[in-house]
Design a protein around this nucleic acid. Structure first.
Lengths: 231, 231
DNA sequence: CGAACCCTTGATGGCGATCAAACGCCGTGG
DNA sequence: CCACGGCGTTTGATCGCCATCAAGGGTTCG
């Protein structure tokens, strides 16, 4: 591991509060590996051997059934993923692939579970991480069940705008076909959904969006009364 | 609290492993309360003041947005609910109402968080509970995104059959309109979905179902390769 | 006995998927 | 430097799943 990236990983909510020596032990037992784009990291059903920490790059978590597949989460650096499978020592429920060349820290699942038992701060951080992830999924599920596609897109735009500084401008980082899959629709319908939002306060120019009428957009998208949690 | 129900609550995965005296402290600080049917226990957006443990009865967790609402989970005794909101000290993301008269143990959220910090076994159980809940939600979300309604119903029947002993018979405990909401469809379409499953190995007689051709049902519903976790 | 309420069945309509084709961007290779 | 090909995106046409609207049958409870 290069010296420069340890601090970044150490600042992860998951590892931030734990003891320094314990954290060193985790790093010592882990592997930092580089993966090319479009590489499958693991597949649904496999036993969870490693906690993954994306240090650099972009990773897609997806699920598939009956030939179809759907994006569950887009992982941006620096963050960990598939913590729940590691904690429970159970098979992955999602598959993962790199979208671009990525550097990933692989922490042996056995080591994670061992350290959790030894370091209460790590256990507490894990518990918190899982609770926040749980809440994210509750939001995602209600979104899918209660809103139609253009409304889901509208809400995503509102959230992204907040996370990107609240300037009224939003830059889409992922490809639109990926965004469509994340939102549970086809690329064709995503395109049409952008068209719909054009009449509700959103201006689209490629990957660059502008909210021209926030009130109109919120009236259309009906954002949740409870704002997304801070991680 | 009556003497007879303490053992049952004590056997909850959440409280099972913790120290006896700590558990007594939790019970001492909690309230066992009886609620009539159809009573709203709390609503989405409210601050999470209590961890709830359903001792007896039936509770529905649901979310609503824009006039519509959808069932997120049907809670059967004995189990706890809204643990994630309590742990994170954040507002509820779901509302809850009793379906029938119910007895519920209300544990002050502040007390839960305090005891978690003091009792590592309780923290570990909480962590595990959240991880399993997380995985349940991943399954629910992929189900919603990848399968159409009759397939979702088929999978639910297969799971229930397993949980009810694998005898080929399934008894539906909840009303069908509730089941429909849980599956993300209307009562009308649930009715039609049962009709469809009639051609795929399922026999319906009111709330009593029989799987007459498991292979056909599985071919139709394509159950997940990873079976539901044991809690 | 009647009034809800749940479940079912039928008819219709809308959202979103699928199929198809054209456009623009970008990298490669001539 | 330009032509070509591939891929992502957009737009249009059609189809299918599911929601909605409507009505009738059965059960429960006052």
């Amino acid at each position: 591991m290069r010296a420069g990236e340890k601090p970044e990983i150490s600042q992860l909510p998951l590892f931030r509060e734990m003891g320094d020596s314990d954290r060193e032990r985790i790093f010592a037992g882990s592997f930092l590996q580089v993966f090319p784009p479009q590489l499958t990291l693991f597949e649904l059903g496999q036993h969870a051997d490693f906690l993954h920490v994306l240090v650099d790059g972009l990773v897609e978590l997806y699920a598939s059934s009956a030939g179809r597949d759907t994006t569950m989460r887009i992982v941006e650096p620096v963050s960990s993923f598939i913590l729940a499978a590691v904690v429970t020592d159970m098979p992955y429920l999602m598959s993962a692939r790199t979208l671009v060349a990525s550097r990933i820290l692989l922490v042996p699942a056995r080591l994670v579970r061992e350290m959790i038992r030894q370091d209460v701060s790590l256990m507490e951080a894990t518990m918190r991480e899982l609770a926040l992830g749980y809440r994210d999924l509750v939001r995602a599920l209600t979104d899918m069940k209660l809103r139609q596609s253009a409304e889901r897109l509208g809400n995503l735009i509102l959230q992204q705008e907040l996370r990107q500084g609240g300037t009224g401008k939003v830059r889409l980082r992922a490809e639109k076909r990926l965004l469509a899959s994340l939102l549970g629709m086809t690329p064709e319908n995503l395109s049409r959904a952008f068209g719909v939002l054009g009449q509700h306060g959103v201006e689209v120019d490629g990957a660059q969006l502008k909210i021209t009428d926030r009130a109109a957009l919120e009236a259309f998208a009906r954002p949740d009364p409870v704002k997304p949690d801070e991680h």
